[in-house]
């Protein structure tokens, strides 16, 4: 973990931590309700509205803060599903092998070729926009990469001497997986999760930009698309939500990269 102390790692960790804090503390941090008509129409950034107001007179800063919260909720939900499914499939497949491995891997491949973004579009078009279904559809389709990498790592690890040693000492499969295998998989899991959640965040923002996010929740993508309509007269509407998306994705990517680098060098 010391190697995280390189600049990229520090920046990544800070930005990610900031995203989490802003998301969790949104009700306390935001100056107003993001939907309240709170000021003049299209006011540029001022002391009362540090990021300006939109056409309806809503505070952009509050919108960005609540948008970060919506992103965080989506990303956490998807992340949890991906983590559980990806890890389970990967380890079972790699450790057990045989017909179970074949079945799981063919299933994984089938899912892997599905275009996630378009699948999300279809689900939103069919069931209407909503954070819950977005989490489910992205969660159920984003795990194949993680599962495949975990499987290959498990395959190579289970022939290593220390695993063989544990087995000859009579350790149970459960014990081997949890105590011998898992700690060695952790850095890979961490790196991949960072990259996957960054992708999910971008997909969520893109859907919002296309007007397909939950209309009752504030989303960064939706704010940015609203800003696009006023691009020539109110730069702040698109700039700040866009910057927030950039910062969040950058943070997750930098963090994931530096974790990966750190473990490679270890």
């Amino acid at each position: 973990m010391r190697r995280l102390a390189r600049p990229a790692g520090v920046i990544g960790a800070t930005l990610t931590l900031a995203l989490i804090c802003v998301g969790l503390l949104a009700p306390f941090l935001a100056p107003t309700d993001p939907r309240a008509i709170d000021g003049p129409s299209l006011s540029p950034p001022t002391a009362t509205h540090p990021m300006g107001t939109d056409a309806l007179g809503r505070d952009v800063l509050s919108g960005v803060i609540y948008g970060a919260r919506t992103s965080l909720i989506t990303v956490s939900g998807v992340g949890l599903l991906v983590f559980l499914i990806g890890i389970t499939v990967g380890i079972v497949s790699g450790y057990r092998g045989g017909w179970l491995d074949d079945v799981l891997m063919r299933g994984t491949e089938a899912l892997q070729v599905l275009p996630r973004f378009f699948l999300a579009l279809v689900v939103v078009a069919y069931f209407g926009p909503g954070t819950d279904r977005l989490v489910i559809v992205l969660g159920l389709t984003s795990w194949p990469l993680l599962a495949r990498v975990i499987r290959s790592q498990t395959l190579s690890l289970r022939r290593r001497d220390f695993i063989e040693a544990a087995r000859t000492q009579g350790a149970s499969d459960y014990r081997i997986v949890v105590h011998e295998l898992w700690p060695n998989l952790l850095p890979t899991v961490f790196t991949l999760m960072g990259l996957l959640t960054a992708q999910v965040l971008l997909i969520e923002a893109s859907l919002g930009f296309l007007g397909l996010s939950d209309p009752d929740a504030v989303s960064l993508g939706y704010l940015a698309s609203e800003g696009q309509r006023f691009l020539r007269v109110a730069w702040w509407l698109a700039a700040f939500p866009g910057l927030a998306i950039l910062v969040a994705v950058l943070g997750l990517n930098l963090l994931a990269d530096s974790v990966g680098d750190a473990t490679l060098r270890a």
């Binding site: 309700d33 939907r35 309240a36 008509i37 056409a55 309806l56 809503r58 007007g211 209309p215 009752d216 609203e226």
Partner: peptide
């Protein structure tokens, strides 16, 4: 959508 957002905000009031 702008009508919807304003309607929602005014009625929330």
């Amino acid at each position: 959508d702008a009508y919807g957002d304003l309607f929602k905000a005014q009625l929330a009031d």
